[in-house]
């Protein structure tokens, strides 16, 4: 019975589930010690402890050991070698080139994604309704496509022999792109990878930012126009400040996601990326499962998590500051 009445309340939930209880309700009603919430949270805590905290501890331990394939089969405890794995990777030029590559990719891809995402969001506010609907529907489809699938579609489109991209570029007079291999030169390969990541990332950014833009008060924009502000000034001084919290959040998320780039490289490079295509995620994986260097792989993963920790802490602090969390 209640379910029938629920739509009145429920549809509003997605729009603002964050809205804390009404101001008065924030004050805890009961102060006496309650065990119920702990019982409720217990199963989740157990699962998180068993399948996240424990593995993480295990990873730390393994990163200080020298674990090889034979230890995996015999179950023998691998020898403790202290910081040797860390010394090894931190003094390895290859590791640092991987870190640098991952960082550069993250900065470039996030910058392009955010700028384009914002541009598309602004564009959605300028076009007529029909075009906006077409844009939203298209982006929904792109957003829905699994990462692995979109990577394969791109792989097919840039195929050296039968790919449509080479065919189209070849049509340009004076350009010979027949049988052009996009991955022979890592620079071009990374352009393909970045394009794929940006293409797949735009829908989330544009749609979220467009939703944010609708929150910018009309009066402000109109007042700015009346006062003779240019479009650029309005954007800089009115729109962006209002949008700032949202921009910070989506930028942080994009940094975290793109820093962990794996799927696209993995699929485009046939599950065995060359040195020039390794990112921190693929590098750790290749070390562990390709070469059975579980300890070195673990050390790389630990360093990766440490590198991301700052950004993650920033994100969580941001969520608290916005007051969403309470």
């Amino acid at each position: 019975m209640h379910a029938v009445e629920s739509p009145a309340t429920a549809p509003s939930a997605p729009a603002a589930p964050s809205t804390p209880d009404k101001p008065g309700a924030r004050v805890p009603r009961r102060r006496r010690r309650e065990w119920t919430p702990l019982y409720l949270a217990l199963p989740a805590l157990i699962l998180l402890a068993a399948l996240l905290a424990y593995p993480f501890g295990r990873m730390l331990v393994v990163s200080f050991q020298d674990m090889q394939l034979r230890h995996l089969f015999s179950g023998a405890t691998p020898p403790w070698i202290g910081f040797d794995n860390y010394t090894q990777i931190l003094t390895d030029g290859v590791f640092w080139s991987v870190v640098l590559r991952t960082a550069v990719f993250t900065v470039v891809s996030v910058a392009i994604s955010i700028v384009l995402g914002l541009a598309v969001a602004l564009l959605m506010g300028r076009v007529s309704n029909a075009v906006r609907v077409a844009m939203v529907i298209t982006m929904m489809f792109v957003w829905a496509i699994p990462q692995l699938v979109s990577a394969q579609i791109f792989k097919w489109m840039v195929d050296a022999d039968f790919g449509v991209l080479n065919y189209l570029i070849d049509k340009i007079p004076g350009v010979d792109f027949a049988n052009h291999s996009w991955f022979a030169d890592p620079k071009q390969g990374w352009i393909v990878i970045t394009t794929l990541v940006v293409w797949a990332g735009i829908p989330f950014l544009a749609i979220t930012l467009h939703a944010g833009l609708t929150q910018v008060p009309h009066e402000l924009r109109e007042a700015a126009l009346v006062d003779g502000a240019s479009a650029w000034q309005t954007l800089r001084n009115i729109v962006l400040p209002v949008l700032r919290p949202l921009l910070v959040i989506v930028t942080t998320l994009s940094v975290i996601w793109n820093f962990g780039l794996f799927t696209q490289v993995w699929a485009l490079r046939d599950s065995k990326p060359e040195q020039e295509y390794q990112t921190l995620a693929t590098y750790a994986f290749t070390q562990a499962f390709g070469r059975s260097e579980y300890s070195v792989g673990s050390a790389i993963s630990v360093v990766t998590v440490l590198l991301m920790l700052g950004v993650m802490a920033f994100y969580i602090r941001q969520m608290f500051q916005i007051g969403d969390v309470d």
């Binding site: 997605p14 603002a16 944010g212 919290p245 959040i249 998320l253 969520m319 969403d324």
Partner: peptide
């Protein structure tokens, strides 16, 4: 929503 909730207030 789960990711950006609250930012769009």
């Amino acid at each position: 929503v789960g990711l950006t909730a609250g930012a769009v207030k």
